[in-house]
Amino acid sequence: MSRARLPSLDALLAFEACARLGSFEAAGAELALTASAVAKRLAGLEDRLAQPLLTRGPRGLGLTAAGHEYLPQVRQALALLQAMPLHQRASQRRERLRISSTPTFARQLLVPALPDFTAAHPEVELELTLSVPLLAEGDAGADLEIRHGAVPDEISPAQVLLRDRLTPLAAPALLERFPPLQQPADLLALPLLRTPLQPWAPWLAAAGLADAAEPDAGPRFVDLGLTLAAALAGQGVVLARLSLARHELVEGRLLQPFALAVQADRHYGLVRHRPSPAAEAFAAWLHGHCRALEAENLSAAH
């Protein structure tokens, strides 16, 4: 019994991509080939079949009558091949999850804990992007978004990840340049770092300094992580979230001159944009991680 001379799989993939995308360039980009390489594969297939499958024109590629008849057969054959378990790479069996996060939350809280999630959910491929909170610039393609905002205007109570506490922190080198701090009012003699994301008013009021003005000197940092970096560099005192600065406190790179800490009026929340099993698994893990951080902060305060 003689065997039919079958076209190559590469040629069939090139034909299907050209028919679907309408140009050699687009097909080449998808197949990681040059446009000329795709054209050669298609020409070879047409030579083998002894008839044209696609028309070439100024508006792109179009199907001939033979191409219209051949395309569904090719797609059916490719689908059968792709459905075979041995043909599916491990990466193809993973579910991709895209997460948008505010920068400081991502660097200080999320990224260090990610190995725990990936170990528990190896089938989920995470993709992490950063947003700009004050400019309300997020990632429109994200499945989940970690947002910093007011409750309930920008996030709902059910979406809250972490109810944080605020307290002044400073680098040892900065504190050494000033007389010892005996009471909260002494703090006003030091440079106070400022950010529109976290005014000093709540802590100053709780410390009996409600009449003290917001700092109006020095750089204005539109990112909580930048205020931490400036504090670590000895540039001033930061009104910091205990969760974000916990490593710096443990390592002694930042010091807490006063035990007073107040509840933040803006919180981190997790917003679901595209529900999926992977999104639900990540949400459950992240809420649990943040509850543990919250309990750690409370125990440290006592």
Rank of each mutant, 00 (worst) to 15 (best):
residue 4 A to Q: 12
residue 4 A to E: 12
residue 5 R to C: 11
residue 9 L to V: 13
residue 10 D to H: 10
residue 13 L to I: 09
residue 16 E to W: 01
residue 17 A to H: 02
residue 24 F to N: 01
residue 24 F to P: 00
residue 25 E to F: 08
residue 26 A to P: 01
residue 29 A to E: 14
residue 31 L to A: 06
residue 33 L to W: 04
residue 36 S to R: 15
residue 40 K to E: 14
residue 41 R to Y: 05
residue 45 L to M: 11
residue 48 R to T: 15
residue 53 L to F: 09
residue 54 L to S: 01
residue 55 T to L: 11
residue 60 G to Y: 02
residue 61 L to Y: 04
residue 61 L to E: 04
residue 62 G to R: 08
residue 62 G to P: 01
residue 67 G to S: 04
residue 67 G to N: 01
residue 67 G to W: 00
residue 78 L to I: 08
residue 80 L to M: 14
residue 82 Q to S: 14
residue 86 L to I: 13
residue 89 R to C: 07
residue 89 R to H: 10
residue 90 A to P: 02
residue 90 A to T: 10
residue 90 A to H: 10
residue 93 R to L: 15
residue 93 R to V: 14
residue 96 R to W: 10
residue 99 I to C: 03
residue 100 S to G: 14
residue 103 P to M: 05
residue 107 R to I: 11
residue 112 P to V: 06
residue 115 P to L: 12
residue 125 E to K: 05
residue 126 L to T: 04
residue 128 L to N: 06
residue 129 T to M: 09
residue 135 L to V: 15
residue 136 A to R: 14
residue 136 A to L: 15
residue 141 G to F: 03
residue 145 E to P: 00
residue 145 E to I: 02
residue 147 R to L: 13
residue 153 D to F: 06
residue 153 D to R: 11
residue 154 E to G: 08
residue 155 I to G: 00
residue 164 D to M: 08
residue 171 A to R: 00
residue 172 P to Y: 12
residue 176 E to D: 11
residue 181 L to Y: 05
residue 181 L to S: 05
residue 183 Q to N: 09
residue 184 P to K: 03
residue 184 P to G: 06
residue 188 L to Q: 09
residue 188 L to I: 09
residue 189 A to W: 11
residue 192 L to Y: 02
residue 193 L to N: 00
residue 197 L to V: 03
residue 198 Q to L: 10
residue 199 P to E: 06
residue 203 W to M: 09
residue 203 W to S: 06
residue 210 A to M: 11
residue 212 A to W: 04
residue 217 A to Y: 08
residue 228 L to W: 00
residue 232 L to P: 00
residue 234 G to N: 03
residue 235 Q to D: 13
residue 236 G to L: 04
residue 237 V to R: 01
residue 240 A to Q: 02
residue 244 L to M: 13
residue 247 H to K: 12
residue 248 E to L: 06
residue 250 V to S: 14
residue 251 E to V: 10
residue 253 R to E: 14
residue 254 L to T: 03
residue 254 L to S: 04
residue 260 L to A: 04
residue 272 R to I: 13
residue 287 H to C: 12
residue 289 H to I: 07
residue 293 L to Q: 07
residue 299 S to Y: 15
residue 300 A to W: 04
